[in-house]
């Protein structure tokens, strides 16, 4: 499951030939000209970070993979409208974020229509959250998996408007400026939301923090 980030890091560059680095914009230009291999390279470069981002946001792997594929389909059909004044990584994350938010809205509608949805609040902040079980487990791998599950559940309990900038910043390791551009928010708002999200997580994950 673990993946070396240098394999797909969001540096936007790859070595297609020895000594030659191809930028995202060059690949996009080639894809616009009909080069499917160039678009395949775009997919290979971003499929893992986009899938990981969507998974952390939705906490549903199958849905995350489906939306990641849809993200690349949207990118493909919008190649003509893409402007190179923005970084491609910002562009593709913005599409993925919009799809994820749309998916959340669909879930909300479904939950309203369902009988159990009648008793749920609008925000997911009230979603059930199980506090971490700090009892020692015999196997380290099991402990890590359990810890990841607890952290993922804690992230899932955050309201979407706090959850998304937190994931982009602390999981995907984008800069504050990039997060602000992806979410089309002001820099101050972005920082405020990330800080608020960290505070919420700190309360929920106090058992896993040193202080």
């Amino acid at each position: 499951m673990a993946l070396d980030k240098t394999q797909y890091g969001a540096d936007g560059e790859t070595e297609s030939a020895p000594g030659r680095v191809v930028s995202d914009h060059q690949l996009i230009a080639a894809a616009k000209a009909g080069d499917e291999d160039a678009f395949g390279e775009i997919i290979a470069r971003y499929k893992n970070p986009i899938t990981n981002f969507l998974f952390r946001f939705l906490n549903d792997y199958e849905e995350a993979v489906d939306l990641a594929q849809e993200t690349f389909v949207r990118v493909y059909f919008a190649l003509d409208r893409y402007h190179t004044k923005f970084a491609f990584s910002t562009y593709i994350y913005r599409i993925a974020a919009n799809l994820a938010i749309t998916e959340l809205r669909k879930r909300k509608r479904r939950s309203i229509l369902s009988l159990t949805g009648l008793f749920q609040s609008d925000e997911e902040s009230d979603a059930e959250f199980q506090p971490p079980d700090t009892r020692p487990l015999p196997d380290t791998g099991v402990v890590d998996a359990e810890r990841d599950r607890v952290i993922a559940n804690a992230i899932g309990t955050l309201p979407p408007k706090y959850r998304m900038p937190l994931i982009l910043r602390d999981v995907e390791e984008h800069s504050y400026d990039e997060v602000a551009q992806i979410l089309e928010l002001g820099l101050g708002t972005t920082k405020s939301r990330i800080s608020r999200a960290r505070g919420m997580l700190r309360e929920r994950l106090s058992g896993y923090l040193e202080n």
Binding site: A2, N52, A64, D148, E173
Partner: peptide, 22 residues
């Protein structure tokens, strides 16, 4: 404290796209 949260979130395994994604 923010650094702790970042460290904790970074320590999670990265999820990969499945085979045949492209």
């Amino acid at each position: 404290k923010d650094g702790e949260i970042r460290k904790l979130l970074n320590s999670m395994d990265q999820v990969e796209a499945p085979d045949g994604f492209e």
